[in-house]
Amino acid sequence: MVNTTFDVSKISPLDGMVPPVGGVSLREKSYVGKINLRGNVESGDFGHIVESVLGGFVPTTPNTVVHYGDLTIFWLGPDEWLIHTPEGGQGDLIDRLRAALGDTHSAVTDVSDYFVVIEMRGTDCRDVLARGCSLDFHPRSFVADQCAQSHFSHANVLIHQINDTDFDVQVRWTYAQYLWGFLAEAVENMAA
């Protein structure tokens, strides 16, 4: 038997990063549970089984986001979604999804630590994003609860518009420091 009790700690790649001073605030959204979900909503039971677990249908319009209770579900592809859960909630939801899906062809994968989410808050978010991402974030082209996978300079990102002004940017763990640095410099350049 192992006698030691371990003082378990968690870290994030953004621990200790200094937030920039300027018109947009940056903050890490800590330890969101994240699940990658794959399945075919066009035939078979997958869509309805998942609906019964999540409390609603997965988004089928490309690059959109839906919210059911404390879950946020992102369209990633025609058969691929990302589910955000509250911290630590991913394990239980994965179990429930797998149990409900049974033999229905699908994939449920814990990716909670694969990604890091950076919250951008402030009226100049679009201008900050424009310094590294070529997507059109003009209000005529990009609206709340729209999301897009693209690249911000060299980093793959999932950009989610929260409301009229604010955005969340999700990035792979190992690109988080790079992305933070880029965003912070953009904020500071704009403030100058």
């Binding site: 190992t174 640095g181 953009a186």
Partner: peptide, 18 residues
């Protein structure tokens, strides 16, 4: 542009890096 010095390229590191 911004792609210089520490932003010239991404340095991927693991959680054990510290």
């Amino acid at each position: 542009g911004q792609n210089r010095r520490e932003l010239f390229e991404q340095n991927r590191t693991t959680s054990m890096q510290p």
